[in-house]
């Protein structure tokens, strides 16, 4: 199984990872190799098998509705690349 250049670029954009034109070939090769490995899944018969999303058969634990987190903005923003007046800044977003 091989993956097309177009697919690599489609997936790279979905994942927001820039793939330059000189990297494209390597990614295409690498991903195709992994896909060939992954294709071996189809040798395994799974007719009528329920998908398994969690390794345990447990139900969601629920917490009581209480405010337990005080303002920690300063600590939270210590590692932030760019903040101003408590806001995280990003290049202008146009809706």
């Amino acid at each position: 199984m091989s993956i097309s250049e177009k697919d690599v670029l489609r997936v790279a954009h979905l994942a927001r990872i820039r793939v330059s034109s000189d990297e494209l070939g390597d990614y295409q090769e690498g991903l195709s190799g992994i896909l060939s490995l992954v294709e071996q899944m189809h040798d395994c018969d799974t007719d009528g098998v329920e998908p398994m999303a969690h390794p345990q058969d447990i139900q969601l634990r629920l917490r009581e509705d209480q405010v337990t987190e005080p303002d920690q903005r300063d600590a939270m923003q210590e590692s932030a690349p760019q903040v101003d007046e408590g806001l995280y800044l990003v290049p202008r977003v146009i809706e």
Binding site: I3, D7, R10, V11, A15, I17, G30, L35, V38
Partner: peptide, 12 residues
């Protein structure tokens, strides 16, 4: 990056 891409592909 390779794994992110393959994972994105598998879910797309």
């Amino acid at each position: 990056k390779r794994r992110i891409l393959i994972g994105t592909y598998a879910l797309s």
